[in-house]
Computed example of a mutant assay.
Amino acid sequence: MSGHDHLDPDIDLFGTIDDAEETLGQFLVSRARVDATTRFDEHSHQEDQLAWMSSGSMELAVLGDHRQLRREHLAWIPAGLVHEMRFSEPGELICVYADPALRPRGGGWNGARTVAVDDLAGALLLHLVDAEPAGPRRWRCWSLLVDLLSSAARDDEALALPREPRARAIASALIADPADPRGLDEWAAHAGVSPKTIARAFANGTGWSFREWRVRVRLHAAAGMLVRGAAVQDVAPAVGYDSVGGFIGAFRNRFSVTPAVYAARSREDLGGA
Rank of each mutant, 00 (worst) to 15 (best):
L13Q: 12
D99S: 09
A123Q: 08
A173Q: 10
I175V: 15
S172K: 15
W187T: 02
V193T: 08
T258N: 07
L128E: 06
S194W: 05
E92F: 12
V117W: 02
P100F: 02
P237A: 01
E47P: 15
W139I: 11
A238V: 03
F87K: 00
T197S: 11
V29G: 06
I94Q: 10
Q233G: 14
G207Y: 05
W208I: 14
S266L: 02
S194G: 08
A167N: 03
R254M: 14
M225F: 10
S54V: 09
L184I: 08
D19G: 15
G15Y: 05
A236V: 00
G135P: 07
F202R: 01
A98W: 01
I198D: 02
V34G: 00
L74P: 02
S150Y: 07
S88R: 05
A101L: 09
W76C: 01
S209F: 09
R211M: 12
G122D: 02
I248P: 05
V129R: 09
A250W: 02
E268W: 07
T114Q: 11
R252M: 11
R254E: 13
P181Q: 06
R154I: 15
L74D: 01
Y262I: 05
G107S: 12
G205F: 01
C95M: 15
S55H: 04
G246H: 05
A32E: 11
G122L: 05
A231V: 06
V193R: 06
P178F: 04
R267M: 03
D41E: 12
A167S: 06
E157S: 14
Q68T: 13
L50I: 05
G271L: 08
L63G: 14
R166V: 10
H45R: 10
V235P: 00
V115C: 01
Q68P: 12
H66G: 09
R252W: 11
P90Y: 00
H66L: 08
G111V: 15
A123F: 09
A250M: 02
F210N: 08
F87C: 01
S2N: 15
A160W: 06
G64V: 04
R200T: 12
D147M: 12
A160Y: 10
L102C: 03
V239F: 04
A189H: 09
F40E: 11
P162T: 03
S150I: 09
A51F: 05
L270M: 02
R218E: 07
T114A: 13
Q46I: 15
N204R: 15
S54N: 07
F40P: 07
F27T: 01
W109S: 03
R71V: 11
R71W: 13
P178C: 04
S143Q: 15
A191S: 08
E42Y: 15
L102T: 03
D155V: 07
H127I: 11
